[in-house]
Design a protein around this nucleic acid. Structure first.
Length: 584
RNA sequence: GGGGCUGUAGCUCAGUUUGGUUAGAGUGCCGGUCUGUCACACCGGAGGCCGCGGGUUCGAGUCCCGUCAGCCCCGCCA
């Protein structure tokens, strides 16, 4: 049906007869001469109908075309007249002069435009999702999905070359008590019993290690029934990796090799080895476990200088064991009050009661904090003329997220220069546990993190201080992946589960199969999972994961095109032994 | 579960502040003119449950209450 793809036609093919096929992208009818832009996945090509080279029937056929009709054209590749060339179009030097045109299929008038003029807004996302096949015809989405394909292909090839093999793991799995809510699937054969869709193949890949598949990779679909965000979908894809007889450095090296390949595909820089910073370090210097290191701005501790001032709020915070940390913004004094308020608001949203600030003006300091300054305070803080100083006082778990938010807001407000366009970072040594309140512990990553050998003695005395052999891969402030070395000792694994509040019976019921497997001769092992959707979004400049997924869900977890989820017939439920408690 | 923004012609948007004849524009659609266009140009036409429901009012796209949907954020989630 086709001898060439539309986007591949060029001047070298002048004089050749070609057959092309695709969609009517646009049409321009000048009366005695008519043009149509024909689009296929490779691009857009102008076809022309004129009395000198087209039959009357062909002319009429072109006149009768509507947008998005599907046509096949037989014609001759011709150079355009010099004055009629279009340098803004990849195929702008040529056109196909139509000899014969066949309408393969008519399209109803499109509900949303496929071609959107440069300065016009895209249709609302609601309509783009409802009429997804039309939206997907746009080159932008076609390009993003192609990039996604090429990245996944490169990842598979890379890991294969490194001796990894892909093993599929079940989609119908066992519900787990930890982490996110499960999507449940009723069993017809066993009424009243349920499968869960996997939140990740975590346990299965550990079982594969125990089974001897010492280098595993899978492009794995994962499901989590939680409320959504721009960077969160209920089903998403991971490059899931696990290997035996490894240290964290081995995983890091493989991932860095992978990112070199992927960056090459995406046309960006990923110089290896990546920066490695400890969790403790990044929280101290950036207030975040996924700092954006494209900007040099760092948080500093000013407890000594500011805690000594005659200022009750600061003294009280220090007396209660808190610290005073802040940001010194060179040249920030020119920010308007409104802009500083916006930075403070960002810090408040992140959980701080407020932010204290001072401007270092010509000969004096101004702002709420400045009137408590002593003669030497400004110098001790290192403030030069024109600087803005922001500070937060209190316990680190409060001030760190607040200063992170303030840092990012200040960077935006001051339009601070980037020191690099691509910041790749390993954050290592995450705590194994986090405080769940009420004296309870929760898993910081998940319950399958090997404690740092130097911290195992703290498990009973100070579990929150126990670092794990866990690491995150961070790119430009986005967490792209997360992994760890896993406990391969069953007793240690059981002990960790117990610390998370699971009773012996529950551990046996939920994780007995894992613990039994660990006792069957489990090799030391560890791995990582990389988020494909986020990776593609970041590398393609997409604002939302929905723009790198062919058929995404809305923020209310609905599929607008096919209309899922839906109610089902009572008889269908009855066969499953369940009844739906429908909301009023 | 909570907060915010948005919802007007097939699509993108004005109009809502301060309630008042017949709700507009561009584009798309339909008809016509046009031989080098490429956001073709020009002429004409059709097209509206102003998201939905209730209320206030002589009168509601506009004010009030509720509700639904999409998006962003918090909670939640790695």
């Amino acid at each position: 049906m086709r001898s060439a793809a539309a986007g591949t036609i060029n001047l070298d093919m002048a004089g050749r007869e070609v057959r092309i096929a695709g969609w009517v992208h646009r049409r321009r009818d000048l009366g005695g001469l008519a043009f149509l832009d024909l689009r296929d996945r490779s691009g857009v090509l102008q076809a022309s109908a004129g009395p000198e080279w087209s039959s009357g029937a062909a002319m009429e056929a072109v006149r009768g075309l509507g947008l998005e009709d599907v046509v096949a054209i037989r014609g001759v590749v011709s150079p355009r007249p010099e004055a009629a060339r279009n340098p803004g179009m990849a195929t702008g030097d040529v056109e196909v002069r139509i000899v014969e045109l066949e309408v393969l299929n008519r399209a109803r008038t499109p509900e949303i435009p496929v071609y959107v003029p440069p300065e016009e807004e895209l249709p609302s996302e609601k309509l783009r999702l409802r009429h997804r096949v039309l939206d997907l015809r746009r080159g932008e989405l076609q390009d993003r999905l192609e990039l996604r394909h090429r990245l996944i292909l490169a990842a598979r090839n890379y890991f294969h070359a490194q001796g990894f093999m892909e093993v599929e793991t079940p989609i119908l799995t066992k519900p787990t008590p930890e982490g996110a809510r499960d999507f449940l699937v009723p069993s017809r054969v066993h009424p009243g019993e349920f499968f869960a869709l996997p939140q990740s193949p975590q346990i299965y890949k550990q079982l594969l290690m125990i089974a001897g598949f010492d280098r595993y990779v899978q492009i794995a679909r994962c499901f989590r029934d939680e409320d959504l965000r721009a960077d969160r979908q209920p089903e998403f894809t991971q490059i899931d990796v696990e290997a035996s007889f490894v240290q964290p450095d081995d995983i890091h090296a493989w991932c860095e090799g992978l990112m070199e390949k992927l960056a090459e595909v995406a046309g960006i820089e990923a110089p290896t080895p990546f920066v490695r910073l400890s969790y403790r370090d990044v929280m101290e210097r950036f207030g975040s476990d996924r700092p954006d290191l494209r900007y040099a701005l760092e948080i500093r501790d000013f407890t000594d200088v500011l805690g000594a001032l005659d200022f009750g709020i600061l003294r009280g915070a220090v007396a209660r064991g808190g610290r005073i940390r802040g940001l010194r913004l060179e040249g920030g004094a020119h920010l308007a009050r409104r802009q500083i308020d916006a930075i403070e608001e960002a810090a408040r949203t992140a959980g701080a009661p407020g932010l204290l600030w001072a401007k270092a003006q010509e000969d004096r300091a101004t702002g709420p904090l400045a009137r408590f300054f002593r003669d030497d305070t400004r110098a001790l803080l290192g403030l030069a003329r024109g600087d803005l100083f922001l500070a937060a006082a209190g316990p680190d778990p409060v001030t760190s997220p607040a200063l992170d938010a303030a840092r990012m807001a200040a960077i935006a407000a001051l339009d601070l220069p980037r020191t690099t366009e691509h910041s790749w970072l390993w954050v290592t040594g995450f705590p194994v546990f986090e405080d769940a309140g009420g004296g309870e512990l929760a898993a910081n990553h998940h319950p399958f993190v090997q404690p740092h050998p130097g911290d195992i003695h703290l498990l009973d005395s100070n579990p929150l201080a126990v670092r794990g052999l866990a690491y995150d891969l961070v790119y430009n402030g986005t967490e792209l992946g997360s992994g760890s070395i896993r406990p391969h000792d069953a007793d240690l694994q059981a002990r960790i589960l117990g610390m998370l509040g699971l009773g012996p019976d529950e551990i046996r019921l939920k994780f007995g199969f894992l613990l039994d497997a660990l006792r069957s001769g489990a090799p030391p092992h560890g791995g990582i999972a990389l988020g494909v959707d986020r990776l593609v979004a970041r590398l393609s400049g997409a604002a939302s994961l929905r723009d790198v997924i062919a058929f995404p869900k809305t923020t209310a977890a609905r599929a607008l095109f096919e209309g899922a989820p839906t109610a089902v017939a009572d008889a269908e439920l009855a066969a499953l032994g369940i009844s739906a408690g429908v909301r009023e």
